[in-house]
Design a protein around this nucleic acid. Structure first.
Lengths: 228, 228
DNA sequence: TCTATGCTTCGGCTATGGTCGAACTATGAA
DNA sequence: TTCATAGTTCGACCATAGCCGAAGCATAGA
């Protein structure tokens, strides 16, 4: 007699490339329409519709009707957390979708990786946080130090808010253009969100490129140079 | 251009019921032979052999030759952690393999759930730890309190050891015979291991049943009754 | 060497499920 | 009402992959 949770059903849902693309796209935290997701998944709208129904049935995503649009999003932070873990595992085991990094120099420079900052800029941020003693590496683990906590709060991020959920606060994410680590987790997302909110940078439409303004570039550099 | 880790490959591996059974069986932490795993998976040896090759190729399990046996085990704690997250998510979303709990009364009383204690005994342990203030529930989160830390150390478990890896230290696990929580995570495993080592109980061969000795039963009850 | 056991490989069968074209439903705008 | 856009459902096609029987390796013991 078999008992226990049925992980195969969830695995099966994630196991289809089109559905995995959909879930990856939703990792940004934004709700997207079926048409947008079809674009991301690389299949037709009909096929996408079927996939969305299965994902919703499996409890991984939820739908919100709004006018004639239907917005899809991940059900909760737990789903996002599990997906992030899977991404991390997949990266560790070398399951990358492309062998080479992004070709576009702008993508190499600064891009969004699900919901956090990647590329040169992402690595620079990560290295600076380590160097300033705000983050501490112990093996593969990453933890926020006391000084890091105040740094984060000063930057306008409520620690309370971002650590209240199941998804890890901070973790390494392997950068496939540079083969080095950058910062993922709710903290990685919060920092990028804060930068976008401060208009240091904005996300280009229909692309993963993060475009820094001149002022934003200046502020970013100052942030990294700041001594403890 | 798609980039990023390919979660679909891992999802696909987990997505097959036979492979999911194999992975679940390996969650106990023990290395098992292909024949044993075929039993667990409910398919023939040939089919199992194919599945094992795929899992190994995907980096989820690793093989150790020993004489004419081949022992399979999960690659590392990270894989175990991801599987545990998936189990938790699956339980939350109501994906259970069976609608009813185990029929066998002994199974209801005390059984192994992957690698930790479940059934009446598991729930009793969980409730006692909460009631004694060793564990603290905040929403769905579970954390070890200061008093819990010393309790664990006194019980002969090295906190250092069990929290050095990526898998969560303690987390709730929904008990499908009782529909209540018991303790999972590395702490859950460590406590069960300690009980087995102290000969309070032993695992029946080819079954999930945990058989408590008379003395073990007494010690267990005393442990739960102990005041802070 | 011979035999038993553990496991893998090969080949053929079959079912599952992903895919898209076409038709249908629903909402909003003119 | 009419048209356009967003999305779902249906049906047919087809590739993938799970499955097992049979045969083939490999190791241990006699």
């Amino acid at each position: 007699m078999k008992d226990g949770p049925d992980i195969s059903r969830i695995g099966q849902l994630i196991g289809d490339p089109a559905r995995a693309n959909i879930l990856s796209a939703l990792m940004s935290g934004k709700a997207l329409t079926a048409t947008e997701l079809a674009q991301e998944a690389g299949v037709t709208l009909q096929t996408t519709s079927g996939h969305l129904a299965k994902l919703a049935d499996g409890g991984l995503i939820r739908m919100r009707k709004q006018g004639r649009h239907r917005y899809y999003a991940l059900t909760d932070d737990e789903v996002a957390g599990v997906l992030e873990n899977l991404m991390h595992l997949a990266a560790m085991k070398g399951h990358l979708r492309t062998r080479t990094g992004p070709r576009d120099p702008a993508l190499r420079h600064a891009r969004i990786c699900y919901d956090h900052l990647a590329g040169d800029k992402g690595i620079a941020l990560y290295d600076a946080l380590i160097q300033q003693g705000h983050l501490q590496e112990t093996g593969d683990e990453l933890s926020l130090t006391r000084s890091g906590e105040s740094f984060v709060e000063e930057f306008g991020i409520s620690l309370e808010e971002i650590q209240s959920n199941r998804r890890p606060l901070c973790r390494q994410c392997l950068d496939w253009s540079e083969r080095r680590n950058h910062l993922a987790g709710t903290l990685g997302k919060a920092i990028l969100d804060q930068m976008l909110e401060r208009n240091w940078a904005k996300r280009e439409v229909n692309s993963r490129i993060i475009q820094f303004s001149r002022e934003g570039e200046r502020q970013f550099t100052a942030l990294l140079a700041k001594q403890n």
